[in-house]
Amino acid sequence: MLFQETNDVMERTGRGRLHMLNNDEIHTLQQILYRYPTVTSSSIADRLLQRISLRINPRTIRNYRLSLGFRAVHARTRLNNVIFSDEKAFEVDISGVVYWIPYGRPRPTQYQHQVQFRVTVFGAIWYDERSNLIFIGDRTNTTTYIQHLQAAFHLRLRQVFGYYFIHDRPTWAHTTLAHDWLRNNRISCMDNYPPVSPDLNAIESVWG
């Protein structure tokens, strides 16, 4: 751009010939591209300026990205390495209650729910397998929860190395001891989702 007052010539951003990088500069650019695969060309240009004090316009960065073999693709969400776990309480009540009433009197209109048997079941599923079903008779705490995990996965722990673990965030599962057990068995606990979110936990549809 030419300024009439001073006749100083300044380079206008995005115009003129593309800047040519030398081998060392290209190597630095590649390192940044590999380390930050999701950032924009403008952000790459800023990082390059911080690293080697060289200002390159984003259009040049885009061209170098293509020439170095980088292509834009959409990330694929993989669910075949996610473990969905949950516990479910089942109740067996008394059904078909017979009332003996005098002849001619109306039938009872109120029925009091009577639980005959109650059991809590813990289980987990993943892409092509499931855990053992654990029947829980007593109340659960952190210690018993870890015991349930050990019994549920048992011989399948090697199959789920490197997997992600989702639970419905009960208090006994969201503890340091529980997280340490998962970490020691190379399982990552996913806690960055809403605490009550059955739509995000596939096992909710299994219980029926």
Results as ranks from 00 to 15, higher is better:
Arg62Lys: 13
Ser43Phe: 13
Arg169His: 15
Ser43Lys: 14
Phe90Cys: 08
His174Arg: 10
Val97Asn: 10
Asn192Met: 02
Asn201Pro: 05
Tyr34Ile: 02
Leu149Asn: 05
Asn81Arg: 14
Tyr111Glu: 08
Thr144Trp: 01
Gln147Arg: 12
Arg107Thr: 03
Asp93Ile: 10
Asn7Arg: 13
Asp168Gln: 06
Thr60Ser: 15
Phe70Gly: 04
Pro170Ser: 13
Thr40Lys: 06
Asn23Met: 08
Val92Leu: 11
Arg15Glu: 05
Gly104Phe: 05
Ala173Tyr: 09
Thr140Asp: 00
Gly16Arg: 09
Arg183Glu: 12
Ser43Tyr: 11
His167Gln: 09
Ser53Thr: 12
Val98Arg: 14
Arg51Trp: 02
Gln31Glu: 11
Thr140Ala: 07
Ala178Asp: 06
Ile166Ser: 00
Ser53Val: 02
Thr142Met: 04
Asp168Cys: 04
Met20Pro: 02
Asn22Gln: 07
Thr176Arg: 12
His27Thr: 07
Thr171Lys: 14
His113Ile: 10
Ser197Met: 01
Ser131Gly: 02
Trp100His: 10
Ser67Arg: 15
Asn141Lys: 12
Tyr193Glu: 01
Arg65Asp: 01
Asp8Arg: 15
Arg139Tyr: 08
Gly69Lys: 05
Pro194Ile: 07
Ala178Pro: 05
Asp46Leu: 08
Leu155Cys: 01
Gly14Thr: 01
